[in-house]
Design a protein around this nucleic acid. Structure first.
Length: 351
DNA sequence: GACTCGTGGCC
DNA sequence: TGGCCAAGAGT
């Protein structure tokens, strides 16, 4: 885009934003911490999903200090159902570093803020531009979609290197008087007008500057290569209750999928193994009775794999010590633990 | 650079 | 219904 159209583009975009921007909770504050929380929650997550989590989270942790030293189990419970749970752990680590190393002031340079856990190129630019009014790019999926159309960029946005093209484009286009509004305007435009399918070009404030609109191929952009299919993994899930009416639960490993979340014991189904024997052996219990009348069998689809879960409801007796991170707990105690959605589905059946 | 890491909504 | 997505970051 050439001068003077850049200036007209900026003005039209920011003016539209001032008129049409959505009233969102994190737009009612200038607290860098609260904007930080919102940006982390919004990573790969829809606005409508985030809103109630955001409100509850800041009610519980209104300041950097209140989050920095919160118990991790409580923190995960606040994040329960939101997904990508490492975000919560990284956010707390970053917040703790700000409290201890930066005297509880969120850094205002890309150099420093990018060192914090959980803050990558996008989140750094979002916080700097929105909270500190710094002219920094914040390129997310929305921005790549909008600018791929406006500037008719046809490189594959699934290739990481392509993001640099868009960052340089934002650097050239950004409104240095209103960088936060400019960045948010691109995102709101992507969410409300310049949508992935059926873009509302006739309502677009910058269609006069949009090459794809002129070419009539906005719905063909951006170019994005496909992903690979998800793998399937089968488990038997043992919902085991003892004589006191307590259920056997265990804490997952501290790294990887659903790290540190709680679950009913799961035995992966292999061709050469008996899951019932494995369960009794691994957890030092014997099955007294199996409830064949109950039946719960369902799939849970993650972004990169699918669980096929078959629940087995049993009464058990403990024979010796349980493995680490496994214990029998009463139902109301289990409900205070952070559990992933597939386990919450099982919990619902028990109530 | 390719994988990993959640969930709910949409068509 | 299955695939695709939605304000990415870590490894």
């Amino acid at each position: 885009m050439n001068y003077p159209y850049i200036e007209e583009f900026r003005h039209s975009l920011v003016e539209w934003f001032h008129q049409e921007k959505r009233d969102l909770p994190w737009r009612r504050t200038s607290d860098p911490y609260k904007i930080w929380v919102s940006e982390v929650m919004l990573q790969q997550t829809r606005v409508d999903t985030v809103i109630p989590y955001y409100n509850r989270f800041l009610d519980k942790y209104p300041t950097l200090q209140s989050l920095a030293y919160a118990p991790q189990e409580e923190l995960l419970k606040m994040w329960e159902g939101l997904g990508y749970y490492s975000r919560a752990r990284n956010l707390q680590a970053g917040v703790k570093e700000v409290v201890e190393k930066y005297d509880a002031i969120v850094p205002d340079t890309r150099h420093d803020i990018s060192k914090l856990k959980g803050i990558g190129p996008y989140t750094a630019g979002a916080i700097l531009s929105i909270a500190y009014n710094k002219p920094e790019h914040a390129v997310d999926g929305n921005v790549m979609r909008v600018l791929s159309r406006v500037l008719h960029i046809t490189e594959d946005i699934a290739v990481p290197k392509t993001k640099k093209v868009f960052e340089e484009a934002v650097d050239a286009l950004i409104d240095e008087d209103y960088p936060g509004d400019f960045n948010q305007a691109l995102m709101d435009l992507g969410a409300m007008i310049c949508t992935p399918t059926s873009p509302k070009c006739l309502l677009c404030p910058v269609r006069d500057y949009c090459t794809a609109f002129q070419e009539g191929d906005a719905d063909q952009l951006p170019i994005k290569s496909k992903k690979t299919k998800t793998k399937k993994v089968k488990f038997d899930v043992f919902v085991a209750i003892d004589k006191e009416g307590k259920y056997l639960v265990e804490k997952r490993k501290e790294e990887g999928l659903l790290a540190n979340m709680w679950q009913f014991p799961m035995i992966e189904l292999n061709e050469n193994a008996n899951s019932i024997e494995s369960f009794q052996h691994n957890y030092n219990v014997i099955i007294l009775e199996k409830a064949d009348d109950k039946d719960l069998n369902f799939k849970h689809i993650f972004s990169h794999l699918t669980w096929e879960l078959n629940c087995i409801f049993v009464q058990v007796e403990q024979q010796s010590t349980l493995p680490n991170d496994a214990l029998f707990l009463a139902m109301d105690s289990i409900q205070a633990l952070p559990m992933p959605v597939p386990m919450l589905k099982i919990m619902n059946v028990l109530n």
